[in-house]
Design a protein around this nucleic acid. Sequence first.
DNA 1: TTGTCTTATTGCAATATTACGATAAAGAAC
DNA 2: GTTCTTTATCGTAATATTGCAATAAGACAA
Lengths: 108, 108
Amino acid sequence: MGLTKTDNFTTEQNELAAFAKALGHPARVAIIEYLSSQASCVCGSIVDAIPLAQATVSQHLKELKNAGLIQGNIEGNSICYCLNPEKWKKFKQMLEPTFTHIEQPVCC
Amino acid sequence: MGLTKTDNFTTEQNELAAFAKALGHPARVAIIEYLSSQASCVCGSIVDAIPLAQATVSQHLKELKNAGLIQGNIEGNSICYCLNPEKWKKFKQMLEPTFTHIEQPVCC
DNA sequence: TTGTCTTATTGCAATATTACGATAAAGAAC
DNA sequence: GTTCTTTATCGTAATATTGCAATAAGACAA
Protein backbone atom coordinates (compact mmCIF):
# COMPACT_ATOMS: atom_id res chain seq x y z
CA MET A 1 0.00 0.00 0.00
CA GLY A 2 2.17 2.84 1.22
CA LEU A 3 -0.77 5.21 1.65
CA THR A 4 -1.55 6.58 5.10
CA LYS A 5 -5.23 6.28 6.00
CA THR A 6 -5.64 9.82 7.23
CA ASP A 7 -9.42 9.57 7.20
CA ASN A 8 -9.33 7.23 10.17
CA PHE A 9 -7.81 9.90 12.40
CA THR A 10 -8.78 13.32 13.66
CA THR A 11 -7.69 16.55 12.04
CA GLU A 12 -5.62 17.32 15.13
CA GLN A 13 -3.88 13.96 15.01
CA ASN A 14 -3.10 14.47 11.36
CA GLU A 15 -1.80 17.97 11.98
CA LEU A 16 0.47 16.88 14.81
CA ALA A 17 1.72 14.01 12.67
CA ALA A 18 2.41 16.44 9.83
CA PHE A 19 4.49 18.71 12.10
CA ALA A 20 6.43 15.74 13.43
CA LYS A 21 6.93 14.25 10.01
CA ALA A 22 8.29 17.53 8.69
CA LEU A 23 10.83 17.51 11.50
CA GLY A 24 11.56 13.83 10.95
CA HIS A 25 14.69 14.24 8.89
CA PRO A 26 18.11 15.35 10.16
CA ALA A 27 18.50 17.90 7.37
CA ARG A 28 15.24 19.55 8.34
CA VAL A 29 16.20 19.44 12.02
CA ALA A 30 19.44 21.16 11.04
CA ILE A 31 17.53 23.82 9.10
CA ILE A 32 15.23 24.52 12.06
CA GLU A 33 18.20 24.67 14.44
CA TYR A 34 19.94 27.07 12.09
CA LEU A 35 16.89 29.32 11.95
CA SER A 36 16.51 29.11 15.73
CA SER A 37 20.07 30.35 16.14
CA GLN A 38 19.02 33.46 14.24
CA ALA A 39 22.35 33.43 12.36
CA SER A 40 20.62 34.28 9.13
CA CYS A 41 17.46 33.43 7.31
CA VAL A 42 18.56 33.94 3.72
CA CYS A 43 17.97 30.83 1.67
CA GLY A 44 21.51 30.85 0.27
CA SER A 45 23.06 30.77 3.72
CA ILE A 46 20.85 27.84 4.68
CA VAL A 47 22.02 25.97 1.60
CA ASP A 48 25.62 26.71 2.61
CA ALA A 49 24.99 25.49 6.15
CA ILE A 50 23.44 22.16 5.14
CA PRO A 51 25.76 19.53 3.67
CA LEU A 52 23.47 18.58 0.80
CA ALA A 53 23.00 19.78 -2.77
CA GLN A 54 21.07 22.97 -3.39
CA ALA A 55 18.19 21.09 -5.04
CA THR A 56 17.87 18.80 -2.06
CA VAL A 57 17.89 21.64 0.47
CA SER A 58 15.27 23.47 -1.57
CA GLN A 59 13.10 20.35 -1.42
CA HIS A 60 13.47 20.13 2.37
CA LEU A 61 12.60 23.81 2.71
CA LYS A 62 9.48 23.18 0.66
CA GLU A 63 8.39 20.41 3.01
CA LEU A 64 8.92 22.54 6.07
CA LYS A 65 6.93 25.29 4.38
CA ASN A 66 4.12 22.90 3.45
CA ALA A 67 3.87 21.77 7.06
CA GLY A 68 3.77 25.45 8.04
CA LEU A 69 6.79 25.29 10.31
CA ILE A 70 8.59 27.96 8.29
CA GLN A 71 7.52 30.77 6.01
CA GLY A 72 9.38 32.44 3.18
CA ASN A 73 9.52 36.17 2.59
CA ILE A 74 11.04 37.74 -0.50
CA GLU A 75 13.97 39.86 0.55
CA GLY A 76 15.30 41.72 -2.47
CA ASN A 77 16.98 39.22 -4.73
CA SER A 78 16.78 36.32 -2.31
CA ILE A 79 14.29 34.71 0.06
CA CYS A 80 14.25 34.91 3.83
CA TYR A 81 12.96 31.79 5.54
CA CYS A 82 11.77 32.22 9.10
CA LEU A 83 10.07 30.08 11.71
CA ASN A 84 6.31 30.45 11.86
CA PRO A 85 5.62 31.23 15.54
CA GLU A 86 1.91 30.40 15.33
CA LYS A 87 2.50 26.88 14.08
CA TRP A 88 5.31 26.22 16.52
CA LYS A 89 3.08 27.32 19.38
CA LYS A 90 0.43 24.91 18.17
CA PHE A 91 3.01 22.16 17.85
CA LYS A 92 4.20 22.79 21.40
CA GLN A 93 0.67 22.92 22.70
CA MET A 94 -0.20 19.61 21.09
CA LEU A 95 2.79 17.90 22.71
CA GLU A 96 2.06 19.40 26.12
CA PRO A 97 -0.29 16.65 27.41
CA THR A 98 2.34 13.98 26.82
CA PHE A 99 5.14 16.12 28.22
CA THR A 100 2.98 16.57 31.31
CA HIS A 101 2.01 12.92 31.51
CA ILE A 102 5.60 11.69 31.73
CA GLU A 103 6.00 13.59 34.99
CA GLN A 104 3.59 11.10 36.57
CA PRO A 105 4.94 7.81 37.91
CA VAL A 106 5.13 5.12 35.24
CA CYS A 107 2.24 2.67 35.18
CA CYS A 108 4.33 -0.48 34.64
CA MET B 1 17.98 7.70 -3.88
CA GLY B 2 15.72 7.31 -0.90
CA LEU B 3 18.54 6.94 1.58
CA THR B 4 19.02 9.62 4.22
CA LYS B 5 22.62 10.72 4.55
CA THR B 6 22.76 10.50 8.31
CA ASP B 7 26.56 10.79 8.35
CA ASN B 8 26.32 14.43 7.36
CA PHE B 9 24.52 15.33 10.56
CA THR B 10 25.22 15.19 14.27
CA THR B 11 24.09 12.38 16.52
CA GLU B 12 21.75 14.80 18.26
CA GLN B 13 20.20 15.93 15.01
CA ASN B 14 19.67 12.34 13.99
CA GLU B 15 18.15 11.46 17.34
CA LEU B 16 15.73 14.38 17.29
CA ALA B 17 14.79 13.48 13.72
CA ALA B 18 14.20 9.87 14.80
CA PHE B 19 11.86 10.97 17.61
CA ALA B 20 9.96 13.27 15.27
CA LYS B 21 9.80 10.69 12.52
CA ALA B 22 8.37 8.12 14.92
CA LEU B 23 5.63 10.58 15.80
CA GLY B 24 5.14 11.48 12.16
CA HIS B 25 2.13 9.29 11.50
CA PRO B 26 -1.42 9.86 12.77
CA ALA B 27 -1.72 6.25 13.98
CA ARG B 28 1.38 6.67 16.11
CA VAL B 29 0.14 10.03 17.38
CA ALA B 30 -3.10 8.28 18.34
CA ILE B 31 -1.16 5.57 20.17
CA ILE B 32 0.86 8.11 22.14
CA GLU B 33 -2.27 10.09 22.99
CA TYR B 34 -3.95 6.91 24.12
CA LEU B 35 -1.02 6.03 26.37
CA SER B 36 -0.91 9.60 27.69
CA SER B 37 -4.53 9.32 28.72
CA GLN B 38 -3.51 6.38 30.90
CA ALA B 39 -6.70 4.54 29.89
CA SER B 40 -4.77 1.32 29.52
CA CYS B 41 -1.43 0.14 28.29
CA VAL B 42 -2.27 -3.40 27.27
CA CYS B 43 -1.36 -4.03 23.65
CA GLY B 44 -4.77 -5.51 22.87
CA SER B 45 -6.60 -2.40 24.02
CA ILE B 46 -4.33 -0.25 21.87
CA VAL B 47 -5.16 -2.40 18.87
CA ASP B 48 -8.86 -1.94 19.65
CA ALA B 49 -8.45 1.82 19.97
CA ILE B 50 -6.67 2.28 16.64
CA PRO B 51 -8.73 1.84 13.47
CA LEU B 52 -6.18 -0.30 11.67
CA ALA B 53 -5.50 -4.01 11.41
CA GLN B 54 -3.69 -5.74 14.26
CA ALA B 55 -0.62 -6.39 12.12
CA THR B 56 -0.40 -2.73 11.19
CA VAL B 57 -0.76 -1.53 14.77
CA SER B 58 1.93 -3.98 15.84
CA GLN B 59 4.21 -2.50 13.21
CA HIS B 60 3.57 1.04 14.45
CA LEU B 61 4.24 -0.05 18.03
CA LYS B 62 7.52 -1.52 16.88
CA GLU B 63 8.57 1.76 15.32
CA LEU B 64 7.70 3.72 18.45
CA LYS B 65 9.69 1.17 20.46
CA ASN B 66 12.66 1.41 18.09
CA ALA B 67 12.70 5.16 18.50
CA GLY B 68 12.57 4.63 22.26
CA LEU B 69 9.37 6.63 22.77
CA ILE B 70 7.60 3.63 24.30
CA GLN B 71 8.71 0.50 26.07
CA GLY B 72 6.98 -2.86 26.36
CA ASN B 73 6.71 -4.91 29.54
CA ILE B 74 5.36 -8.43 29.67
CA GLU B 75 2.23 -8.46 31.80
CA GLY B 76 1.01 -12.03 32.20
CA ASN B 77 -0.41 -13.17 28.92
CA SER B 78 -0.20 -9.79 27.23
CA ILE B 79 2.22 -6.87 26.86
CA CYS B 80 1.98 -3.49 28.52
CA TYR B 81 3.28 -0.62 26.41
CA CYS B 82 4.17 2.54 28.28
CA LEU B 83 5.76 5.86 27.46
CA ASN B 84 9.48 6.05 28.14
CA PRO B 85 9.85 9.16 30.33
CA GLU B 86 13.61 9.46 29.77
CA LYS B 87 13.28 9.69 26.02
CA TRP B 88 10.33 12.04 26.16
CA LYS B 89 12.30 14.34 28.44
CA LYS B 90 15.15 14.31 25.96
CA PHE B 91 12.73 14.98 23.11
CA LYS B 92 11.24 17.92 24.99
CA GLN B 93 14.67 19.24 25.88
CA MET B 94 15.80 19.10 22.27
CA LEU B 95 12.81 21.11 21.11
CA GLU B 96 13.19 23.69 23.88
CA PRO B 97 15.57 26.06 22.02
CA THR B 98 13.13 26.46 19.16
CA PHE B 99 10.13 26.77 21.46
CA THR B 100 12.03 29.53 23.23
CA HIS B 101 13.15 31.20 20.04
CA ILE B 102 9.62 31.71 18.74
CA GLU B 103 8.89 33.94 21.72
CA GLN B 104 11.31 36.47 20.23
CA PRO B 105 10.02 38.94 17.64
CA VAL B 106 10.16 37.55 14.12
CA CYS B 107 13.15 38.57 12.04
CA CYS B 108 11.26 39.23 8.81
C1' DT C 1 19.30 42.90 -24.34
C1' DT C 2 22.66 39.99 -22.14
C1' DG C 3 24.54 38.12 -18.34
C1' DT C 4 24.54 36.88 -13.43
C1' DC C 5 22.73 35.50 -9.16
C1' DT C 6 19.32 33.05 -6.51
C1' DT C 7 15.88 29.69 -5.86
C1' DA C 8 12.49 26.23 -7.73
C1' DT C 9 11.28 22.39 -10.53
C1' DT C 10 11.85 18.27 -13.32
C1' DG C 11 13.30 13.65 -14.10
C1' DC C 12 15.19 9.74 -12.53
C1' DA C 13 17.00 5.85 -9.60
C1' DA C 14 17.35 3.85 -5.14
C1' DT C 15 15.32 3.00 -0.97
C1' DA C 16 11.63 3.40 2.67
C1' DT C 17 6.96 3.32 4.36
C1' DT C 18 2.23 1.78 4.82
C1' DA C 19 -1.21 -1.63 5.03
C1' DC C 20 -3.12 -6.16 5.43
C1' DG C 21 -3.87 -11.23 5.18
C1' DA C 22 -1.71 -15.20 6.53
C1' DT C 23 0.94 -17.41 9.57
C1' DA C 24 4.07 -18.18 13.42
C1' DA C 25 5.38 -18.07 18.25
C1' DA C 26 4.61 -18.14 23.15
C1' DG C 27 2.05 -18.47 26.93
C1' DA C 28 -2.50 -19.41 29.62
C1' DA C 29 -6.46 -22.31 30.33
C1' DC C 30 -8.47 -26.53 30.14
C1' DG D 1 -1.38 -33.20 25.73
C1' DT D 2 -4.90 -29.63 23.04
C1' DT D 3 -6.99 -25.27 22.39
C1' DC D 4 -7.47 -20.42 22.90
C1' DT D 5 -5.57 -15.86 23.39
C1' DT D 6 -2.25 -12.55 22.41
C1' DT D 7 1.34 -10.46 19.88
C1' DA D 8 4.98 -10.63 16.25
C1' DT D 9 6.63 -11.58 11.74
C1' DC D 10 6.46 -12.65 6.78
C1' DG D 11 5.18 -11.70 2.18
C1' DT D 12 3.16 -8.60 -0.91
C1' DA D 13 1.64 -4.56 -3.40
C1' DA D 14 1.08 0.30 -3.61
C1' DT D 15 2.84 4.56 -2.66
C1' DA D 16 6.26 7.95 -0.60
C1' DT D 17 10.80 9.77 0.29
C1' DT D 18 15.56 11.00 -0.60
C1' DG D 19 19.14 12.77 -3.41
C1' DC D 20 21.22 14.92 -7.27
C1' DA D 21 22.21 16.73 -11.99
C1' DA D 22 20.15 19.40 -15.18
C1' DT D 23 17.31 22.84 -16.20
C1' DA D 24 13.89 26.51 -15.57
C1' DA D 25 12.26 30.78 -13.65
C1' DG D 26 12.71 35.09 -11.59
C1' DA D 27 14.91 39.36 -10.25
C1' DC D 28 18.54 42.54 -10.71
C1' DA D 29 22.78 44.82 -13.02
C1' DA D 30 25.29 46.55 -16.70
